[in-house]
Structures are given as structure tokens and as C-alpha cells.
Design a binder for these strands. Sequence first.
DNA 1: TACGCGTGGCG
DNA 2: TCGCCAAGCGT
Length: 361
Amino acid sequence: MSDTKTNGRIDVDPVAFADRLLIWYDRHRRAMPWRALPGEAPDPYRVWLSEIMLQQTNVATVVPYFTRFVERWPTVADLAGADLDEVLTAWAGLGYYVRAHSLHKCAQVVAAGRNGGFPVDPAALMTLPGIGPYSAAAIAAIAFGQRAAAVDGNVERVIARVYAVEDPLPGVKARLAALAGDLVPAGRSGDYAQALMDLGATVCTPRNPACTICPLVPWCRGCRQGCAADLPRRAVKAPRPIRHGIAFWIMRRDGAVLLRRRPGEGLLRGMMEIPSTPWRDTAWALEEAALEAPLPLTWRSLPGVVRHPFTHFHLELTLATAKAGVRADVRGVWVPLAKLEEHALPSVMRKVVSHALHRAY
DNA sequence: TACGCGTGGCG
DNA sequence: TCGCCAAGCGT
């Protein structure tokens, strides 16, 4: 037996656990643009940038964004010197846009600091915008070799299975973090953090975990009990309501379309949008919606609906279109069709553009 | 503590 | 098609 039950708690030997995991990691290490090669010193700027982008976001999605960012802004000082709107435009499509605001702010704080570099320990990192408990620990471990437990969704899942924790998330978060903290080895902290996350992403997956090839099987109570795939348990979530709106696709005679910037707080903060009615629980009639339009024009409904799922509601947008004169005076910015990509349009608004272009004529 | 905050992939 | 889930943070 590799573990013993004591006081209802499984006792895992941390040294053997970490050794086995690191051997697996050395064999299966996946190259990623922000990862240093073995023996190479990591770049804290790239580690930080990747960790912010990877918050609730898959590796495959992040890679092209990360590459564009470091090509355009190779150092934290470069990023600090960029305009916020440039950063928002480069971030467009990645989601959770408050991260882009925090990223820019954090770069400015760090670049203006005494040594122009990132702080080294988790507590100091936590004081920076956009860096919470997970990111602070991950950056400290990966960039600076500190012994810190980076506990993300992957690690929570692995730990819940190893210890067969039946209590549901999010209530059990603190306990999982404590268990994870007890297992962090003294050496190779960065490799250990990345190994545990890689294992969660590729072997100890949410559904159909590959227990037959898992290096942690000797210690995994969830696997032995056959309940690994059911863990971690989660509290039931409230159903997402549907909200409705009408978006106004306004084409000027010279071929430009009206965009406007969303407020600096709330959903899609600071991003550009096709103007629309407020998004509410009931559908809009066109005559009623016209009162919310940026200009008093003659509207025509386009067939079809643009659907987009947000975290806490589903949006259904229909489109109304109209033509405006070149002298139309309105709050917003007129953008030629060919230049829409140069603006910070979130995915839902790209869907609106696509829908309008396919249905308008 | 619980909620607001995007998007894409997968079964 | 749909619900779940992802290298979470801020309030």
C-alpha cells in the first residue's frame, strides 16, 4: 500500500508523489511559446502574460494571442507604453475583457517600479491588478522558483480525486488548496506546478480520466474506488436566462458603419459594439426599439437571430438596418467595412457583423 | 460568500 | 443542440 488511512484522511508521501509526477513531466513535457527550455531561465514577463491569458482560457486559444502580444510588445515596458485601445484591440476575441484592462495597468505599475521588474514572492504579486492567488503562486513558482502552490481548476480536480474528496465545489476550495499545498516539493517548484496542470489537462481530464496511464495511480483513492470520473462534485448552478435586444446596423452612403464604445464598466467594458437596445428579458417590437436607436431612421428588420452565450445569460439579438446620410451627426465612430477588424470588437459583435453582411442584400 | 464576467471545444 | 468546463479575479 502506498497510502494509509488516518483519521479519515489519506496520507500521501509528498516526496514520492512529486518524484513520480516530475518523471512523468520530463517525459511528456509539451512545448509552449511561454515555457523556457530545460535549463533556460524563464522570462517573468512572458510567464506573467501567459498566466493572465490562460485564466479560464484553453492553451490552444491563447497561443496565437500570446505570440502576437510578445511580437508587438516584447517587454513589460513596451506593453506599459501602449495605448489601452491598442491592447483591447489585440485582446478582442479572448474574452473576460477586464483582464486586458488589468494587464495594461499591471504593466504600467511594474514598469514604473524601482527595478522595472516583477516582484518575486506571491504576497507582493497579489497586490498587482489582475493577479489573484492562483496567478501569484504560478508566477512565483514558474518564473522565480519559489515554493508556492498554484491551485487552478486542474489541480483542484487532481487533488479531489487523489483524496476522493466528495464535498462539492466551490465550498471545498480551501480544503483542496490546503491539501495541494502539503504536496508541493522543495525543489523544481515551477516544473511541479506545470506538471500538475499538464496532468490535469491531458490525463486526469474532467470526463473519461485516463487512469490506466496516470503516474499518480499508486496514491489515487478516487481511481481505486472507481469514483474518479465523478469528482470533483459541484453545486448545482442556476439556469441561464435569455436576454433580447435589437442591434442597429447603420450603413452610411460612403459605406461606413456606425460603431460606439461600451461603458468602462460592466459587460464587455471598453470594447466597441454595434449600437443596440438594452438587453432585457422580453423581446422588442421594432417600433419600440427604434426609440432606443442612435439616429431616427427608417428601419428594416433582417431575418434571423444572432445567438451568443455569456457566462450568466444567453443573448438573442435581431438586426435592424437603415441607411444614413454622410452628414449624419451622432455619437460614435463611422468605420469602413474593410477596417472593422482594426477595432476592439468582441466575438458577439463579430457575429453581428457577419450576420449583417450575409443578410443585408 | 456569491455573483458578474467571454469564448471555444467537446461528448 | 446543449450543458459542461477551462492555467480565476474583483467586488
